[in-house]
Design a protein around this nucleic acid. Sequence first.
DNA 1: AACAGCTTGTGAAAACATTCACAAAATAAA
DNA 2: TTTATTTTGTGAATGTTTTCACAAGCTGTT
Lengths: 206, 206
Amino acid sequence: MKKISESTVRRLSLYLRFLQEASDGGLDTISSDELAQRGGTTSAQVRKDLSFFGSFGKRGLGYSVPELLRQIQEILGLSRSWKVALVGAGKIGSALFSYRDFQLRGFHIRAVFDTDPTKVGAAWGDLTVRDDGEMDAALREQGIDMVIVAVPAEAAQGVVDRVVKAGVRAILNFAPIRLRVPSSVALRNVDMTVELEGLSFALINR
Amino acid sequence: MKKISESTVRRLSLYLRFLQEASDGGLDTISSDELAQRGGTTSAQVRKDLSFFGSFGKRGLGYSVPELLRQIQEILGLSRSWKVALVGAGKIGSALFSYRDFQLRGFHIRAVFDTDPTKVGAAWGDLTVRDDGEMDAALREQGIDMVIVAVPAEAAQGVVDRVVKAGVRAILNFAPIRLRVPSSVALRNVDMTVELEGLSFALINR
DNA sequence: AACAGCTTGTGAAAACATTCACAAAATAAA
DNA sequence: TTTATTTTGTGAATGTTTTCACAAGCTGTT
Ligand SMILES: NC(=O)c1ccc[n+]([C@@H]2O[C@H](COP(=O)([O-])OP(=O)(O)OC[C@H]3O[C@@H](n4cnc5c(N)ncnc54)[C@H](O)[C@@H]3O)[C@@H](O)[C@H]2O)c1
Ligand SMILES: NC(=O)c1ccc[n+]([C@@H]2O[C@H](COP(=O)([O-])OP(=O)(O)OC[C@H]3O[C@@H](n4cnc5c(N)ncnc54)[C@H](O)[C@@H]3O)[C@@H](O)[C@H]2O)c1
């Protein structure tokens, strides 16, 4: 299969979101142009993005909202549910844990780990925060698909090495550090400092 | 001035971080190749990125760590301090508020707003959570440079319209929605669902 | 059945970003 | 001083992504 760019995948996520809104609004067809306007892109871009995966539209008409919704969910792997573990039960960890949108889209947090004895044992929803030492075995036993890393930067690489060794192949990292992972592991970083610095640059350059 | 790409700016942020580490480690020169390896890029890329802004290195030697540190801070606008307001004193808002890295890099949260009467009036550090109704005037009075939007998606566009009208020209958005802003306003989105969906796509495509 | 009005799907062109490759400059050693 | 070694800065080459532009296909109308 042809290599799909990261920007295409990001845009598919956005299209999916608009389709959901359109669907909630009772709309049943949508054109590439409408999709584009909502996403701040062009209709040609929308069509090109979709064309990597097939032809889902009807000329003269546009796309069937429920049909395209289903197709993009399929493409992105969202028709199944994913088992997620959260490492680091701190401030950002707890915000993420209670974030309903994740559940809603099929990302289910099934385990939470921390090293802090004052946090281990705490009840979080229907889970218990477990000791970090149990992580390696638990990831395998529970068949965890993805790990969210929300530990301090100094601890992050160590955690990730163990996570990778345990066979997990997708990681979402919140620590402000460039993690090293084998190329077989998918890694995304959420780096808020980089975003703020980008804004700073924009402010002084106009 | 030539247009600088967003990827270049992102990488500058990363270089800055490595330079800080190098500086803390007592290193006083660094080569484009060392910088590249830490950032998962190539030495040519590092040199090209820097070349948009000047020549900071010495052939045969590399870059002076403190000098390049200062230069990149200057380029990114980090030699001054920025006044930031936080809108939405919820779970993610409170995590962000207590995030020390922001302060450390010159982003100072100077005001927090919320609509919820049970939150308004609460003491957050040396600030008081203020009523959302006071926001428009306060942004101007305090000379706020940037706003962090951490309100529910439904409320985000409304908040942003007011923020823009109040003259703020940089926004960091956490709500899972595509905000519309005039092109004179810099906008960055932190969209965790998009990242998770990217991981999902990666998992089913190898 | 033919025509008018739209919108898709897609090669080709244009714009943009990364990598290559090497002359130029700096240092240190002979 | 000359030579060997290192690493920058940068045009040119290559690779990637976006935009353009239009034939092909679908619907509804006459
Ligand atoms: N708070 C924010 O808004 C924010 C924003 C952006 C990035 N981050 C980053 O996210 C990470 C967490 O930030 P936070 O504010 O939640 O910090 P925090 O101190 O509140 O939480 C970190 C948690 O990780 C736990 N921990 C430490 N080592 C561990 C290990 N080896 N295994 C498991 N758990 C371990 C700690 O006990 C603590 O509970 C940091 O890297 C931070 O830079 C935070
Ligand atoms: N919690 C997370 O981990 C997380 C992760 C990613 C994105 N987000 C997004 O961040 C936003 C906030 O999420 P949260 O979990 O903190 O929700 P939350 O409900 O805890 O907080 C939202 C806060 O915004 C306030 N608010 C509502 N309308 C407002 C207005 N017009 N002006 C000012 N304040 C207003 C509410 O009173 C509440 O205190 C949401 O858009 C959410 O989708 C949250």
